[in-house]
Design a protein around this nucleic acid. Structure first.
Lengths: 112, 112
DNA sequence: ATCTAATGGTCTATTTATGGAGCGTTTGGT
DNA sequence: ACCAAACGCTCCATAAATAGACCATTAGAT
């Protein structure tokens, strides 16, 4: 294939994935955990750990978050309790919100 | 197949993915953006949007972050500049850290 | 300096996610 | 009440990720 149709990732999401990978790698090294150990504890392969730490956008988000959890990188700066309660609060909020969106003629303005 | 070998996700990563999906859905509805519109802007399919909002751990992290970015959900509360500089700082930090981890006899103790 | 092993990379087979179409249902606007 | 459309879901073909083995290189400990 001449050119793999790479998805046009926005700068933000690209950087976010990259930063997350860096944080995982840094936390792993600081904790003196080998890539192999991290892989085993996260239930993934060593090769996947490499891609995650490199910031590959194609990695499954579950695998990435699992690796992050193993080395102690917290998403959302929240502990387990805060996460769980946030989920509950959000679920409640979602029941109140409209289930379907019927956009008016004028489309929602995007922040460019 | 008798049993789909679902990966044993930890509670934390499972909840983190779920919460992220909820936040995206909530932000989308509040902004009055249809699932179809979000899909188009993120460069993904509508079905994938549904799985993302449902908290499917198998979704590509790039797609999830892209969708999050479109509706304004930020994993790291940081703007683009902060993200970029954080990446640079982390990269510099990583060059200082040991490249390979040689764990001592006693393995690194995990938090419980 | 030497030795052990961690790392980064490539390759292949297999599993899995993804896109796209189609379906019936539900929603919100009129 | 009506209607156009958004939604949630399933199925299938295809594309892509993942696991696993392998190798060469490099790093760290002794």
């Amino acid at each position: 294939m001449a050119k793999p149709i790479t998805r046009p990732y926005s700068r933000y999401s690209h950087d976010a994935v990259l930063l997350l990978g860096q944080l995982i790698r840094r936390a792993r090294i600081e904790r003196k955990i080998t890539a192999m150990e991290l892989a085993e504890r996260a239930g993934i392969s060593r090769g996947l750990v490499q891609r995650i730490e490199k910031g590959d956008p194609g990695c499954a988000i579950g695998a990435v978050f699992e690796a992050a959890a193993v080395v102690g990188v917290r998403l959302f700066d929240a502990d387990q309790g805060a996460l769980t309660s946030a989920i509950g609060a959000n679920a409640a909020m979602l029941t109140l919100l409209p289930k379907a969106v019927h956009p008016s003629k004028l489309e929602a303005k995007d922040d460019f």
